[in-house]
Design a protein around this nucleic acid. Structure first.
Length: 304
DNA sequence: TAGCAGGAAAATC
DNA sequence: GATTTTCCTGCT
């Protein structure tokens, strides 16, 4: 199916897909190709129009609008976030960057794999589990694979999963898949609750065991921000630590700053993660997640 | 609560 | 080509 979506607010497809929120999009000859919702979506931006081609009728303009959150007022977000020099420059430099609304299960599984990895590596791992456990479909003479269902991964052996280059992540992914396919994760409830309660739900325990083993504060924040519309979630990865140290040192705990002066590789302890999260969310406000995304882009560009 | 293992690939030197 | 780093979490 071919169609166009008329943009009635700021949007930049490239910034949005290159900001590390999604792992199944590739740019080729001016087009972006992504596997979403069990099908394929081919998109390019022509100023204020998105030109789309999709593999199924369910991937329509309503889906695209929903996925890219095009019905939301980005100007309002920008004006709320661009309160100082750093943020207004970032908002201008990466104007049109949006958070997407991706599939919750896919987002959870992807970020469980994201520990101790970089983006090319994550894309490789995700691609491998899709090719092995996803449903195959054809488009444009090519094979494509949908993201596997939780049951498909839960039914695999850890050894088989490890074959996809997951390493120590394989048992975590399988456990998480089992919890999700077993109905122990109520994503709808997570999405409906405010940040703190939603977060608690992701950390809930059953028989004294975490339901989602392998999901710590960072992964939880990513799931809340990228798939549950918690725009005030503020995931803190190594890049955000760099950005905060550079532009907002006062948001980092003094003790951590001291340690980091000794060793630039110093990592946030769980306690420091919480402290930083609280101060950053307070500082950046209800759209802290957008601020985080802009900081990420800014510091990545500055370091490259 | 601090330190460390985990595991493979990318980035860096 | 070797070393370091990489969108971290769990365990001791």
């Amino acid at each position: 199916m071919e169609f166009t979506v008329l943009l009635n607010g700021p949007f930049n497809l490239g910034y949005t897909l290159e900001s590390g929120q999604v792992f199944r999009w590739k740019r080729r000859e001016g087009w972006w190709y992504g596997e979403v919702a069990g099908g394929s979506l081919k998109v390019r931006q022509e100023e204020d129009v998105l030109r789309c081609e999709t593999s199924s009728d369910s991937l329509d303009s309503a889906f695209v609008t929903r996925y890219f959150r095009l019905d939301e007022d980005l100007e309002r977000v920008v004006s709320a976030v661009a309160k100082d020099e750093t943020m207004s420059r970032a908002a201008e430099r990466f104007y049109g960057l949006r958070l997407v609304r991706q599939d919750r299960w896919e987002c959870l599984a992807s970020f469980v794999l994201a520990t101790n990895a970089n983006i090319p590596r994550i894309e490789k791992m995700v691609g491998a589990i899709c090719a092995r456990y996803g449903a195959k479909f054809q488009l444009g003479g090519e094979d494509h694979y949908s993201f596997p269902t939780p049951a498909a991964i839960a039914g695999a052996s850890v050894t088989d999963l490890a074959q996809c280059g997951l390493g120590y992540r394989a048992p975590f992914l399988r456990r998480v898949s089992g919890s999700v396919s077993g109905g122990q994760v109520d994503f709808a409830a997570v999405a409906s609750l405010p940040y703190d309660e939603a977060r608690r739900l992701l950390f809930s325990e059953l028989f004294g065991q975490k339901v989602l083993l392998g999901v710590g504060p960072k992964v939880a924040d990513c799931v809340l921000l990228y798939s549950c519309e918690k725009d005030d979630a503020f995931p803190i990865d190594v890049w955000i630590v760099k950005a905060l140290a550079k532009y907002y040192p006062r948001l980092l705990p003094p003790s951590f700053r001291a340690r980091r002066r000794e060793d630039l590789r110093a990592k946030l302890s769980p306690k420091d993660y919480t402290r930083t999260s609280v101060s950053a969310r307070k500082h950046f406000g209800r759209y802290a997640g957008y601020a985080q995304q802009l900081l990420y882009m800014t510091v990545r560009e500055a370091e490259s």
